[in-house]
Simulated scan of single mutants.
Amino acid sequence: MTFQLAACAEMLWRDRPIDWRASRLKELGFGVGLWNWPAHDIAALERTGATFTIMNGYLQGRLADDEGADMLLKSARETAAVGKRLGVHRLNLHGTGLGDGGIPVWQHDKVTGPMWLKARDTLNRICDLAEELGVTYTLENLNLMEHPGCPFNTTADVLTLVSSVNRPQLRMNLDLYHTQIGEGDVIRWCQKCLPWIGEVQVADNPGRNEPGTGEMNYPAIAKALKAMGYSGPVGLESNAEGDPEVALQAFRNAFTV
């Protein structure tokens, strides 16, 4: 198998405890992705022995203003301690904190030049923290249809920030579901982002379900990723409205190339 496959536990088997979900993903040979940690029993998750590939690296804060940056750094330090307990490989960030339904807490229709400079400064501070603690952060692209007003949401925005910081402690979480909605031309975006990718996340569009349920040709995307030399983590963030294990097999089939 070319890629390191994982799946977001919080979107699967929603009637089961989170540690059961992590254990089941481990049994099926997948890594485990998480969102926010405060509602979880961290000790129970530790006992599963699962490989935790990614989780949100903050609880609150934002990139582009002084108050938000200070909140982000404080929250990131607290979250990194939890991440280290679980051995999480990557701690994920967004341009601003997300509230209920993924709606950005801090919305801006236009990002100004000073906001760009402040965001780059904040990400350099995140890299300093990551270097101190021995962790890695990713910055994720989103789409404005589902996350209206989110600053630095596009694939291009995230690539610009991560490449301008250009430090190994910060990579891209390239979410191809969001890229498809926001920009399309997914394979060429993979090529552009390749030097800075820390993780690729996937779901089909529309519906945010597993590969094969929508318009995205994931077997072709997987072959293209392999051809360009990517062999890193690929994480499924799927609603999996049917049987989660059927969804996981469809995911594995699409990315076994």
Rank of each mutant, 00 (worst) to 15 (best):
L174G: 04
C127Q: 07
D121G: 02
Y177M: 13
I197W: 03
R167P: 02
A156V: 13
L142R: 09
G149P: 05
T138G: 01
G184A: 02
K110Y: 14
N173R: 00
R188D: 15
L194V: 00
M115D: 11
T122L: 04
L142N: 06
D121Y: 12
L144G: 10
T122A: 11
R120H: 11
A130D: 05
L139T: 01
L174Q: 01
T138D: 06
T179G: 05
Q180R: 11
G182E: 10
E146P: 03
E131D: 15
D157N: 12
G113E: 13
W116R: 10
E131I: 00
V202N: 03
S163Y: 01
H147A: 09
A119F: 00
I181N: 03
V186A: 05
V186E: 01
R188T: 15
A130E: 08
Q180L: 11
N173H: 12
E146R: 11
E140Q: 06
A119E: 05
T179N: 13
W196T: 02
G182W: 06
T155D: 11
K118Q: 14
R167W: 04
T136F: 09
R171V: 03
C127F: 06
T136V: 13
G182P: 02
T179Q: 10
M145K: 15
R125D: 01
Q169Y: 04
E199D: 11
S164Q: 15
